[in-house]
Each structure stands twice: as C-alpha cells, then as structure tokens.
Computed example of a mutant assay.
Amino acid sequence: MEASVAARPLISVGALCGSLRTGSCNLGLIRSAIEISKSIKGLQIEYIDISPLPLLNTDLERDGSFPPAIEAFRQKILEVDSVLFASPEYNYSVTAPLKNAIDWGSRDPNVWGDKAAAIVSAGGGFGGGRSQYHLRQIGVYIDLHFINKPELFLNAFETPPKFDSDGNLIDEQAKESLKELLLSLQAFTLRLQGR
C-alpha cells in the first residue's frame, strides 16, 4: 500500500476563501489544510487570493480578454487539478466575494469545468452548512464535481473553542477530519482524471 501512495502523481489544489478578513476562521481552515497537505504524499495546496478581483462587470471584458487580475485568477484555476473552497455562510448562502470569483471563472471559456472540488466551512450553529449546499448547486451549472463525503462544518463559536483568536484551527479532531477530507479530494481527483 505504501508503495502505491508514494507513486501517486502530484495533485495541485487551488484553495479559495469566501471571507476576506485576515482573522477569518475559514481562512484558518485553508491555512490548516495547507499545513496538513505537507504530510500527504502527492498533494499540494496553493491559496488563491480573491480579494483583488473587481466586481463582475462584462464591460471590463475587451476584445476577448479580461482585466489583468481576472486573467491571473483564471489562469491559476486552469492550472490546478482541483479546488478547495472555504465557504462562510452569509444570509443562508455563499459570500459575495466568493460568488464574484466563481462568476468571473465561469465566463466563457469556463475555467471550472470538470474539476474535482471540496468544501469546508466554519460559522454559527450549522457551521456554514447552508453555504455548502448552495455552493454545490452552483457547481452543477459550472461543471464542478464535489466530493460527497466527508463533509466538514465547524461551529466557530462553541466551547471548547476550535479556533484561536487569530482564526487558526486548534482542535485536533477537526484537523483529523480535515485531513480525511483532503485525502478524499485527492483520491476523487485521481479517479476523475483517470490516473
């Protein structure tokens, strides 16, 4: 078994956070995922910052090209094998910055198509679960393929705390759940690509 794990091809994951706050627990989930990925052979995660993206306005598209920040973002999505979303919940849905990034990526030609994806979230009582389900619906139209299990919803406000005051994940059981999710994303990406 160990030999087959060592022989796995490299899977690159682009990680997007729907919150723009520096101390966001959802950004903390991405930082933790990047750290955990260092212990998983064949998996590499890169954080893709969506904060520089202007609001979607098709007037910004000129002669089949996009503004430089959008072109750079779209290129990064094209280059990764799969996507990890950290999706906080705003008003039962995904955040405006995340929806904006998704919409820019879906402009013709759609850069999301046929990529594997996974979602993590932290928030209030349901841990951002409603945003996850809404994001899955969006994914149907843009041809993203989400792993079904495991799901990871974390209540960011319960006691004992799962996050420190800087938004870093400190709960060991949650870290283990996050690792299981990343392993599932890796395996699903390989299967989807026929590797």
Rank of each mutant, 00 (worst) to 15 (best):
K149N: 12
I48S: 04
G28A: 01
Y141E: 15
L55F: 15
I119A: 12
N155S: 09
S39H: 14
A15Y: 08
P52K: 04
A101N: 04
L78K: 15
E46L: 08
V5S: 10
G64K: 01
L78C: 15
S24N: 09
Q132K: 11
I11F: 10
Q44T: 08
I36N: 01
A187I: 03
S184A: 14
L152Q: 08
D166I: 07
G14N: 00
I45G: 05
V94F: 04
G129N: 11
P97M: 05
F85P: 08
L43Y: 12
F66C: 05
R31D: 14
G18E: 07
D171P: 12
Q75T: 15
V83S: 03
Q173T: 14
F126N: 14
V94W: 08
I36A: 00
L98A: 01
L29S: 00
I11L: 11
G18S: 06
L144M: 14
L169V: 00
D49T: 08
D63M: 07
G18A: 02
V111T: 12
K99S: 08
S177P: 10
S24G: 09
T95R: 02
K41T: 14
S82K: 04
S4P: 07
V94Y: 02
F73C: 01
G139P: 09
S4G: 01
F85G: 02
E46Q: 12
G124Y: 12
Y90T: 04
G42H: 07
V94T: 10
K99I: 05
R130M: 13
L182S: 00
A6M: 15
E158M: 04
I138Y: 07
S177N: 13
G127K: 05
A156N: 11
P68R: 01
K76T: 11
Q186C: 00
S12V: 08
A96V: 15
S32M: 06
H134F: 11
N155V: 04
S121F: 11
G18W: 02
L135D: 06
L178R: 08
F188L: 05
A72L: 12
G14H: 04
G167K: 06
I11Q: 06
E61A: 10
R21C: 06
P161D: 00
L135S: 03
R107A: 05
D59W: 05
V13L: 08
E79Y: 09
N148E: 15
V94E: 03
L144Q: 09
E176H: 15
K38Y: 10
A69E: 15
L190K: 06
P109V: 13
D108Q: 15
G124I: 15
L135E: 07
S82I: 06
G28Q: 01
D108G: 15
Y133N: 13
